[in-house]
Design a protein around this nucleic acid. Sequence first.
DNA 1: ACGTTACGAGTCTGACCCGTATCGTATTGC
DNA 2: GCAATACGATACGGGTCAGACTCGTAACGT
Lengths: 199, 199
Amino acid sequence: MTSTADAPRSPGRPRSIRADEAIIEATLDLLAEGSTIEALSIEAIAARAGVGKATIYRRWAGKDALLLDALRRLKGVMAQPAGHSVRDDLVLLVGAIGKNVDPRAAKIMPCLAPAVNRSADQFQLYQNIISPRRQLMREVLRRGIDEGVLRADIDVEVTMALLTGPMLIQRVLQWNPDLDEQTLPERVVDAVLEGIRAR
Amino acid sequence: MTSTADAPRSPGRPRSIRADEAIIEATLDLLAEGSTIEALSIEAIAARAGVGKATIYRRWAGKDALLLDALRRLKGVMAQPAGHSVRDDLVLLVGAIGKNVDPRAAKIMPCLAPAVNRSADQFQLYQNIISPRRQLMREVLRRGIDEGVLRADIDVEVTMALLTGPMLIQRVLQWNPDLDEQTLPERVVDAVLEGIRAR
DNA sequence: ACGTTACGAGTCTGACCCGTATCGTATTGC
DNA sequence: GCAATACGATACGGGTCAGACTCGTAACGT
């Protein structure tokens, strides 16, 4: 359990940290440029990273392991709601869906859709990325209920899907080309807040 | 413009309709079984269809053309709202999202997500499939407005995204594993109808 | 009967890729 | 200096696939 202390200090030349970084970056770059997950080849990654193939195989067992690591780095930083207005916080969170500090994330996400349904590992990875974001939105909704801004009887989980879904299908699937992505977060939040039934 | 009348009646053995059908079916089957679009090979399709490779190349220029044709057949029949209750019609339409007469459609759809963003053709194909469904939902919403069940000032396009998004991310991305897909349509429609703001 | 075209099956060339191994070189601890 | 391990580069055998081609056969019009 004391994994840090022992430091077996292996002899010989140590692994190059630059190579580590270059390999991960090359992987993400190629994905962002439009390569699909399985069209991605170790050889292409090695060439792009300026690295020998052996250097990759020395670190990862195969493409899957490398991808898992590479996507893990992509998580980035989550948006932080200000905590003043529930509406504004929701607009912020909805606007942050599919966005990331790393601009490559938006391009890569659609590629993950098929993988999520095929590999349990990748499904888990996907859930690991989004579940803290869901939690963040959940807390804002709970706060809204506590403050009396939102009704107490709403289904929080369904509400999150309501807020997230439209943004996600627009960003990932370009579901409706006529829908303006820029103003969508605001319009979605307000529509969910008010409902559509006549009263 | 009279494309049906001329009938040049080419000599020789006519193209086998059974082969046409078998090739399309094999393509859809392989996709539904989990093959991704680019992992799909002409050779595999030919083998599965019990057809020579040449028979495929005689009909389509390549994999892309074949795929376009195959996915076109997948459209299937749209759900038909009963027209009595706006709420029930919406529940029906939302429940039909990602469903199809062809059960393979649900498995195939996630694979299209990456393709939609890469090929203009596939994007167009995707839009051709979903835009009539959007139109159907739009008409139900307009009817609701006319009947006074829905407010007249709602944004119809955003409302459609609100209804469609949650169902689509759940079916395609398994966005939230804790969300029950069975009851989701009802819960989504009711949440959108009522809104979540306290009043 | 005969020319024409399609058929399933198979072959062939040229890509591309995986994963391993082997170069000569570089960087570490001892 | 020396063993150990890393590095980039490259070569290798084994595999899959695209497309074009070749068979012998089958189905059509005349």
